[in-house]
Design a protein around this nucleic acid. Structure first.
Length: 222
DNA sequence: CCATTAAACACCC
DNA sequence: GGGTGTTTAATGG
């Protein structure tokens, strides 16, 4: 196996050929069926994960175990670095919303890359910065705002150009999936999508949503 | 009152 | 026919 040259492997652009070979030989492909867990709270972190194809839901839970908010991880996204860097146990449940193909980089390889590749470390810094922005926005706006606002926010986050560089503007995502990510019911999601379509921010189709105005979604306020 | 749930129905693949 | 979208009725905070 070799690392591709697409957006999916943008973090590998600055690697030397020997580095690329070592990373590629340690990579593990895994398929996760819809509805099953990729990893659960409390598990030790053993891998850095890449979403080759699919959609995941990352749900943060309180110390009491109550579910809080959700973030989608779409095709092209990489995650799990925070837990690896801190050598902690995982703080999130991650479940597949559809059949998903993953690429797993062993923790040992990941930490070796951080120590030996400045370009990889720099890429990681950008990624962590993006995520930090997401969480700040999450805590600032969670528990408030109508269903429409939450759906708009969910879609805008799915389209973060740095975290999901390969994401096309036409995402094959069902309303049930959006409902899971936004934390509201399916009929409510349906109504919210139509309101966003009226505002010319999205177009709704069968089993997919076309994002027309990302900035409009991000700043949408009821 | 608003949102969720369950159910029913219609529609698209 | 199964998955998805949409509406309606019942239920609950």
């Amino acid at each position: 196996m070799s690392l591709g040259t697409g957006h999916y492997y943008q973090w590998a652009y600055g690697l030397t050929n020997p580095q690329r070979d070592r990373v590629a030989s340690g990579m593990i492909a895994k398929t996760v069926p819809r509805g099953s867990f990729v990893c659960r709270t409390g598990e030790p972190a053993r891998y850095w994960y890449g979403v080759r194809d699919g959609l995941l839901k990352m749900s943060a839970v309180t110390v009491a175990g109550e579910p809080m908010s959700f973030i989608g991880i779409a095709t092209g996204g990489w995650f799990g670095e925070g837990t690896l860097l801190k050598a902690e146990r995982r703080k999130y449940d991650i479940v597949a919303l559809r059949d998903t193909r993953l690429d797993l980089m062993p923790a040992e390889t990941f930490l070796w890359l951080v120590d030996n590749s400045p370009s990889f470390s720099k890429w990681l810094l950008h990624q962590l910065n993006e995520r930090l922005g997401q969480f700040i926005a999450l805590f600032a706006s969670d528990r408030q705002g109508s269903g429409v606002v939450r759906v708009a926010r969910t879609l805008a986050w799915l389209f973060n150009p740095y975290l999901y560089p390969g994401m096309p503007s036409d995402i094959p995502v069902t309303q049930e999936e959006i409902a899971h990510l936004a934390g509201i019911s399916r009929p409510r999601t349906n109504a919210a999508l139509h309101r966003l379509a009226e505002a010319n921010l999205v177009r709704v189709g069968y089993g997919h949503v076309v994002v027309v105005d990302i900035e409009g979604l991000r700043s949408f306020n009821d």
